[in-house]
Design a binder for these strands. Sequence first.
DNA 1: AAGAGTGGCAACCGCTGCGGA
DNA 2: TTCCGCAGCGGTTGCCACTCT
Length: 325
Amino acid sequence: MRKPELSAKNNSNINNKLRKGLWSPEEDDKLMNYMLNSGQGCWSDVARNAGLQRCGKSCRLRWINYLRPDLKRGAFSPQEEELIVHLHSLLGNRWSQIAARLPGRTDNEIKNFWNSTIKKRLKNMSSNTSPNGSDSSYEPNKDLNMAGFTTSNTHQDQHADFMPMFNSSSSPSPSMHATVLNSIIDRLPMLDHGPVSGGFFNATGPCFSTQSGVDHNGFYLENGGVFGSVNIGAEGDMYVPPLESVSTTSDHNLKVESTCNTDTNNSYFDDINSIILNNCSNKRTENRAGVENLFQQELTMGEWDLEELMNDVSSFPFLDFSNIQ
DNA sequence: AAGAGTGGCAACCGCTGCGGA
DNA sequence: TTCCGCAGCGGTTGCCACTCT
């Protein structure tokens, strides 16, 4: 760990009275007290008003990654690992997006965990399974199996099959758009007969079931949980907050967009949703009407907020948040 | 016991987007 | 419209602790 004292490299900062490196307990106390008493404002003001010789950026980072009261400490549980791998297969290195679905965990923590543990595991497994495998040839959606996490070979595989289409790095062309739509519709078990699979799209992107079982609404829940934003399963079913729609621009930052806006990116999902909803209304039986309403409400709902997210995620039996301070 | 190698993690760096002036 | 400050993000670095030889 870095030493709290100024390094020689940072001597220039002496003039600026700005410290770098590890935070001392005194600094932590100052920041913690200030944040608890005054709340977050402009971070440069926080640094100044709290009497810290740190830049606002440093204060923000320290608060977010270490001092925040709702941080969950300790090792990642196997369920969290699985969730991280799954989310990473969907989102790539959008650590903040992944962290948003793991309450009490920070993007930095998840990033470090991924780079130090999971990546290594994937690499090992890759080298075991294919002698020519290379780290750089990482492919989303291979994560789950390569990392040794168990997945259903039924619906899960179907999900994995079409998930790359939603890689944020590329925007579907109009022709691909139609092809993808048809492909998705064809593959969505929920639009067919029998138990409704948890695979569906909401306005914020694809939602996936990963836990096995059929809930009382007739929704088939596959191994691992449901990626959706509506708690429509039986009590005890696991739900993960929805994935936001992903901008397909070249921005390195993932754009979090309102699901209600009507830009071209979201129209992609809007089209999917409209088709799904049409199919839903045609194919679903009467006793699913209530669920349909829930879907429709959800599909037109705006972006989820943190509070809602916490409510949703807190219903996960497999995520232990008891350690959150 | 000691040095080398490695892992884990806190913190920094550089970049981008956004909002206000 | 442009500029500036800020927040936030992902990549990278640096250092301590642990393990290995």
